[in-house]
Structures are given as C-alpha cells and as structure tokens.
Design a protein around this nucleic acid. Structure first.
Lengths: 194, 194
DNA sequence: CGTCTATTTGAATGTACTCAAAAGCGGTGG
DNA sequence: CCACCGCTTTTGAGTACATTCAAATAGACG
C-alpha cells in the first residue's frame, strides 16, 4: 500500500488501523488550486480545513486602510485555513491565497465531526496539532516583543529556509511585521557586516 | 451536588456523566499559592497544568539581558502553565508567578494521560481548549502588527477590564510589549484628549 | 525590447526607547 | 500623627529603530 502523505503525518501523533486509514481517506477530497487563487476569503465561513500535500499559501488580514498583514505561511505537511472560523463556523477574519500551485486534502466541517465519532482517536490527533500550533504561536509573540526586526528576520531565515527561498521578499516583510523597504535595508546591512 | 467551578467550565465544551465528573475530581488536587510565589520556573519541566479557581498569575520569559517579557495573564476560569513544556515534558521557557493569592486545581501529566484513556471525551475538551487558545494567540499576533501601542492598550482595557484593575501598570506595559514609561505617556495622552 | 512588478536607496519623519530625576502612594515605626 | 522607606508612576530630554514618500534600479516575462 502506497503511503499517503497525510497518513505519514498522522503517525507522528497516533496509530490508526488499516481500516481507519481507509475510512479516513475515503472521506476527504483532494483539491488543486492554482497560484494566486483564494482558498478562503475574509467574511466567508471557512467550511473546510486543508492539509497541504504540495505548494504554498499565505494567510493574511486586510485592515481598514487596505493594508495586508500576513500572519502565516503554510507549506507541505502544514495546515491552512482560518481555524477560528472553521471550528466555530463563523465568518473568517482572514484570507488564504496560494503563492504557488497548491495541492491539498480537504476536511469538510461536517465530515470531520462525523469522523470524530467514527474514529475517536482523531480527537487526540487534532488536540495535539492544536497544542503544538498554540505553543508555536506563543513563541512567535515572544519573539516579536524581545527581538529587533533584524533578529526576527535572521530567525525566520534560519528556521524556515525553504519558505524564505520560495516567497517574495515583500511578503516576508509583511509576515515579520515590517515594511518591504526596511527589510531591504536590513538585508544590505547584513551583507556589509561580513 | 454543589457544582465545582471546573465542572461548570467543562459544560461549555462536553457533557460528562456524574460518574465521570466524580472520577475527574478524584484525580486532581487543589493547591493554594501565595502572592509572588512561583508555580513554574524557566528550565524546570512543567509537571502539571493548572486551572485557576481564584486569583491571578503572570507567565513571563526572562531574556539574556535579564528583561522580563510577560506573555500571558491568567485569572479565574483560565489555564496557567507552560503548555509546551507540559505537553512535551521538556524544560520550560517560561516562569509562572502569582500576582495575587491563587487557588487552582492541578492536572498532573501522568494522571491526565490516564484520564484521557478513562474518559476519552476529555480529548475533545482539551482539543477545543487548545483550538481556542491558538485562535486567540493568532489574533494577538495580528493586533501587535496592525495596531499602535495606544490602540493595543485601549483594546486590552476594553477586553480585560478585570485584569487591568488588578495588575500593576508596569506589568501591563510588559504584556503590551512597551516600556512602563511609554505606557504612562499613553495614559496621560488619553486623559488629555477627552 | 518594453512593460510590469519587485527591490533598493535616500531624506525626512514618527513612534517608541533609554536614562535620569521627580512625584505619588502605601505601609511601618518612632 | 508624621516621617521615612520602598516601590510604582510620571515627566522630560536625547536617541534609536522603523516608517513614509519619492525616485532609481533590477528582474521576469511576453
């Protein structure tokens, strides 16, 4: 049996039987989005959670002045979607848009609720995923407070080298919470000091 | 049967039978800490998750320069502890210290793991708690990027009036990611503009 | 080669920080 | 009851980090 990337991923957290794996895969559908396509739009209820098989997305918020703030990049083996909107089935605060052609599997809300009943272990899986996501998010808050823009950029570069290479610089600036001009200055400063 | 605050809290997420409630309460212990006492220290493995019955704590990180960064205040009906350290049983990045005399119930790691088996519904409870915490954390990241210090302070005041009244101003400044001097200037500015 | 978008550079500005000192405030003891 | 102590908050001057706006340069693509 050829291993599905999502099943590989679940093995880090829980053990599923072959029957459970089959049931799980039978209930999700695979989708293909092109570069620049929107997966979710601000104001819509997010009806599905998406696990990325290949590609890259950004999750961003557009404020009253029309400024975009990227809060998350997602690549292979990661999730995308506005979890808040998805879990509460209320309108989303964020947009999710593909930065590359992106292939993912989709868990529809109602189907996932069914799956929680059919395979209770999934509660554990998603508990662990949410716990890890929360921990990572808290650490990011801390970095935003305790590090300068330059240090945050270097951290990002070190920690997510794959993302840094695949995403335009002005989006990275947005993710770091600085302007594209300032990130450019930081980079030239780093080059000079070596 | 007199209702325990924690059981009231669980009702928002799951339904427990009377037997499950009794079992649950039999496995947790109640603790009482005094003002300024530490619940967790940076470097220690966080062996228990604490649900606050009454009182108030701060979770903070001490950086290399000895600067404290408060990442979380916890009051009644909230959790305290370094979730990352607790779930992975690795040394903690944070300190948790009481701001007031604080009463809470403690879930020891091993006992909670047992409880997950005895009461599988708890997986669901803690999944939902973690999901909510993650969503709130993401929103805070967004506010830190899109709002000025003054706007963040006003948001904090509006959203957590109880905390604002109970916690010294210099700690609020730390939570907001600004200096105590600057928060003082913000406050005098707000008073003048009205 | 021209066009569109992304990146770089520079000058002026603003937001928030550092350091130092003063003022306010609650508790304790003479 | 007042004086003093320690701790928190306020105020002010000088500074640093990051932004805005404008213009120049570089890269990607048809």
């Amino acid at each position: 049996m050829n291993n599905h990337p999502f099943l590989e991923y679940t093995k880090k957290y829980i053990d599923l039987t072959a029957e459970e794996e089959t049931l799980l895969l039978s209930k999700v559908n695979q989708r293909h989005y092109l570069k620049d396509q929107y997966v979710t739009q601000q104001g819509d209820v997010c009806k599905s959670a998406c696990f990325i098989i290949s590609g890259c997305t950004k999750t961003f918020y557009m404020d009253e002045e029309g400024q975009k703030h990227i809060i998350l990049f997602s690549i292979e083996e990661w999730w995308t979607s506005d979890l808040g909107s998805f879990t509460s089935q209320t309108p989303s605060d964020y947009n999710v848009q593909c930065i590359e052609n992106t292939k993912f599997i989709q868990f529809d809300y109602d189907i996932l609720e069914e799956l929680y009943i059919e395979i209770p272990k999934l509660e554990r899986l998603f508990r662990k995923i949410a716990e890890r996501a929360f921990v990572a998010s808290q650490k990011r808050i801390l970095r935003n407070f305790s590090l300068t823009a330059k240090e945050r950029y270097l951290f990002f570069k070190d920690t997510y080298p794959k993302i840094e290479q695949r995403v335009p610089q002005y989006m990275i600036a947005s993710y770091l919470g600085i302007t594209k001009e300032f990130l450019s200055k930081i980079k030239s400063q780093i080059i000079q000091n070596q």
